[in-house]
Write a protein that binds this DNA or RNA. Structure first.
Lengths: 152, 152
DNA sequence: TTTTTTGCAAAACGTTTGCAGCCCT
DNA sequence: AGGGCTGCAAACGTTTTGCAAAAAA
């Protein structure tokens, strides 16, 4: 944890930004809730517990800054809110998501499933891939089970 | 064109909705600009040329309706607007996109590149895939060329 | 001092909703 | 009459912006 904070601090400094207390509190929330997909409002409320004087605008500005530096990714699952997802250390590409259309749960897939597909896109379409977004919509394990039980 | 309108009319009737003049005008814009990725506002302005009395709310309601019936797909490329994309006739899955980070152009890929990947997701993660969203971000052919020319 | 960052409030933006009126049988 | 559908305006929730104060360099 402290290691990642340090690393992010360096990334900020490299672009002549500072790791202010507000920014650090925001990053800490992101690290603590790494598995979640929090909205700006969610993050704001959690950061407030650590730094009650913080304003929502500062959270937005911090998130924008972290996005620019590719420390986090901004995602949109189709409800009206942007969500923010920490990149894994040294991850070159954004990871994938499984969104359950029944219960709304979001699972992450860290494996890069698109190596082959990207090669095809580059060779067949001449498009130089830099990043990707891949989300599957369907039924998670639990909801498949629930569906079967209801039917039988 | 008329064929697709008829087809959509039938789909609406099957769910006891009507193809009103406003809805038809909206669908026609969508068909005429099939290759584009128009926002609700874009669509509204284009529909206004055919049916000047239409209101923006009606366009939104029509788009929502067409989304429900899976005639169109709502997509989000990360700028703050929803965009709408007509499904190809009989397409089971949503098609993929190549978004150029330089010029903003959006290219469509109709081929289903994810057959294998979906099998992996189903077997390895036990997730029952119903649909997907796949977007690649990178440089389109033209912008790669421009980049090389600037460098040399 | 000069620049960066902050908190607050207001504004802006895309989208949705309430409602009265309209168009159909 | 009754239902669905429409246009308008107002409301809504999220995100951005202006600004003056505070912090850092």
């Amino acid at each position: 944890m402290e290691h990642r904070i340090d690393q992010i601090k360096k990334q900020l400094h490299a672009h002549s930004y500072k790791l202010t207390p507000q920014r650090e509190a925001t990053v800490r929330v992101l690290l603590e809730r790494e598995a979640d997909h929090l909205s700006a409002e969610d993050i704001y409320l959690l950061v407030k517990e650590k730094a009650p004087e913080i304003g929502l605008a500062t959270v937005y500005r911090t998130l924008e800054l972290l996005s620019e530096l590719k420390i986090i990714d901004k995602i949109n699952f189709g409800d009206g809110v942007s969500r923010y997802d920490l990149r894994k250390e040294g991850a070159e590409h954004f990871h994938h998501h499984l969104v359950c259309i029944e219960c709304g749960s979001v699972e992450e897939i860290m494996d890069d499933l698109l190596g082959e597909v990207e090669k095809v896109v580059e060779s067949e379409w001449g498009f130089q891939v830099q990043d990707h977004r891949l989300t599957f919509h369907g039924l998670c394990k639990a909801c498949q089970k629930a569906a079967v039980e209801t039917t039988s």
